[in-house]
Design a protein around this nucleic acid. Structure first.
Lengths: 245, 245
DNA sequence: TGTGTTTCTCAGGCAATTCACAGGTTCCGC
DNA sequence: GCGGAACCTGTGAATTGCCTGAGAAACACA
């Protein structure tokens, strides 16, 4: 089932109307906290664990609908944790967190079963989007919830990563896509540059805040060029997207 | 739940009808006092703490619905305080106070979970508005409360920062917007220039008092021009806004 | 390794915004 | 009707915030 939150965003719910449950497993507390914050904001119920043993225990009693699992844990190998989790929760989808250079082929094999992964450092938008995808496809939430965001004549498909305006296909780079997704998930709402940076860029990004301006400018070139603009600047406050009308 | 106070203002209440609780954490007593006064005036119940230890203790027994947290505390780092607060109160939204120049380094990730921040020196209107937004979105208060202020045919949306009169869109600058928001949150009530200066301008503003007159004049040009005026001067007392009728 | 793509920094330019100042207008008591 | 206080608003200067071109660095992929 999907429902509309007071913010106007669409959130996933389980068939019985209760919130989706997600277990977050990572040994760095700053990461579990960051993820917990962001995922709670999605309206989900979160538990976290710092090692494999704790993960299995928590999973047993918490019965999550999805798991975020760091492959690098102090007490056991990621695969071992996965094995034990699977014994408790055979059908629950897992989102793996891995270091970029540790991108071994074994991950590729793991995701064949419908699981997914993101590399550290990740952006929150990416984690949230992938989790939504996993949960949606696993059937824990209502399957009718679909993967297309629509604002005016602008459409963005989260599964195929296709974007079009008034029927014309538009090619976006990865960052442009995430930025647009964030805007479109919060239509008619002013988003500050800090908010955008926090959600769309990875958590260790240390650069200039004006990348946001730059990417807004890129998006405008591709989306608004020669049409009624949909992306608006609220000077001193941030940016927002809304139907052209 | 929202209700209308004897003063005619709309205030947030918790679902059980009791007042919203806010914890204010700052080491400068002048700041906690300033904030406590302003927030009490909103009808909220306030406690304050001057350091991280006190904050965690107070949070434990006071169970606030929102926290205002200075990131610069004497005894612990702001992030450490945040971590401990989160362990006590996982779902409570936090409004961070930060120095303007500290914006680059530390802020990363702070707004990610739906939290928010304001930079020092802030205006009270801004703090109150953001807190209301956080509380509204967190669901501590009734979800029906929405983000639009209406006075007569004048509408102001706090999410999209859009303002319209009789359907016509009106563009306001940041300061004009805050001034109008303050007026509209106190309709039919005379607000003195001193009150306006204290609420809308930042607490360290040292300029001429006649900026208020100036900005009232700007607002009139945009809102009342060629229509029944809604902004009225009470000579010797202040200004008030009310429906044109 | 080479080529095209993507990400990001830097800095110049421009326009919006804020605010002080000062002269003009309105109001009110007498 | 007069004078002074309170208020209004035009002008312009300083500042701020935003936009965008150019190019360097990182990356992806053959």
């Amino acid at each position: 089932m999907t429902t509309t939150s007071p913010q106007g965003r669409t959130e996933l719910l389980r068939p019985d109307g209760s919130p989706v449950r997600v277990l977050v497993v990572d040994d760095e507390q700053s990461i579990t906290e960051l993820l917990s914050m962001a995922l709670r904001y999605e309206g989900w119920q979160i538990r976290s664990a710092g090692d494999g043993t704790g993960a299995v225990q928590t999973a047993r009693e918490f019965r999550p609908d999805a798991v975020v699992l760091d492959m690098m844990l102090p007490d056991m190998d990621g695969l071992a944790v996965l094995g034990r989790l699977r014994r408790e929760l055979p059908d629950v989808p897992v989102l793996f967190l891995t270091a970029k250079d540790a991108l071994e082929d074994r991950i590729a094999g793991l995701t064949a079963g419908g699981d997914d992964y993101v590399t550290k450092p990740f952006s929150l938008e990416e984690v949230v989007a992938r989790l939504r995808g996993l949960i949606r496809r696993s059937g824990a939430a209502d399957r009718r919830s679909d993967s297309t965001l629509v604002v005016g004549d602008l459409m963005l498909d989260e599964d195929s990563h296709e974007v079009s305006r008034a029927g014309d296909n538009i090619h976006l780079t990865a960052t442009e896509f995430e930025l647009l997704r964030f805007l479109m998930r919060n239509p008619r709402r002013v988003l500050s540059k800090a908010q955008i940076l926090d959600r769309v860029w990875s958590y260790d990004f240390g650069g200039q805040a004006n990348v946001v301006e730059l990417y807004i400018s890129y998006l405008r070139r591709k989306i608004d060029a020669g049409r009624e603009p949909m992306i608006h600047t609220r000077r001193g406050a941030g940016y927002l997207i809304k139907p052209a009308a």
